[in-house]
Amino acid sequence: MTDTLVDLRGVVRDIVLPDGRVLPILRGLDLSVGAGEHVAVVGRSGTGKSTLLNILGLLDSPTAGEYLLDGSSVESLGQRARARRRGEDFGFVFQQFNLLPGRTALANVAAPLLYARGKDFWTRRRRALDMLERVGLGDRWETMPDKLSGGEQQRVAIARALVRTPRVILADEPTGALDVDTGRAVMSLLEEAATSTGAALVTITHDLAIAARADRQFRLDAGVLAPIVLEAAAVVEHALGVPVPAPTSAEAVA
């Protein structure tokens, strides 16, 4: 087992509704991810997958429980420190790419470096260009997002997520808006980038075939996270329209 990078212990996230009722989103969730590890989380819509990703990426805070990043609790971090660590340690890849409109591919990839300091800030264009070369879009650096295909847009988004060499890549449905072949190619790129930099990769997906590529898989259902083993047959069944398999027990996985 590699060194633990992110460690969620009994994380609970509740939302207070306007009428005062409390809606539980995550119910006592445990998850450890080591450096260089690829973890996938599957689950239906509305089960708390995005909330989990936001907590991991310091965009949201747990209502209860503990989040250790590099062995230190993030609870004591102020807003400013959280933002700094988010920029330095995490790279986000979104389902809808979320490229900044009206800016070239290069400007999009360079955007996170606007919040960096020192050399990273001043050399942002060159670094962004290098990163675009790495994802195979070096010749499209001047292109606006709306002139790129879905796969190309996601590759730009991946280049943007990687430009600050994050230690954790958080991918929220990275292939959700892509066809199967393009999705597979994008995942390969993401995995390769994570492996080459030693970054941890946490993928949230509906797609069992994508999830099956990870080192470990979890299913999030009604706010409860449970490890699963995805058999090849199950993946095929899912592709044929069979419901997502019930989680196997943690003991069975162990």
């Binding site: 990426g57 965009l59 807003q79 400013r80 933002a83 700094r84 660590r85 988010r86 920029g87 330095e88 995490f90 986000f92 979104f94 979320n98 900044l100 409109p101 955007a111 996170p112 606007l114 919040y115």
Partner: peptide, 16 residues
């Protein structure tokens, strides 16, 4: 708004 959120994910502080 969405763009501001994306920039937050890059590490933009509230002050920034």
């Amino acid at each position: 708004i969405r763009e501001i959120g994306i920039r937050r994910s890059f590490g933009a502080t509230g002050g920034r």
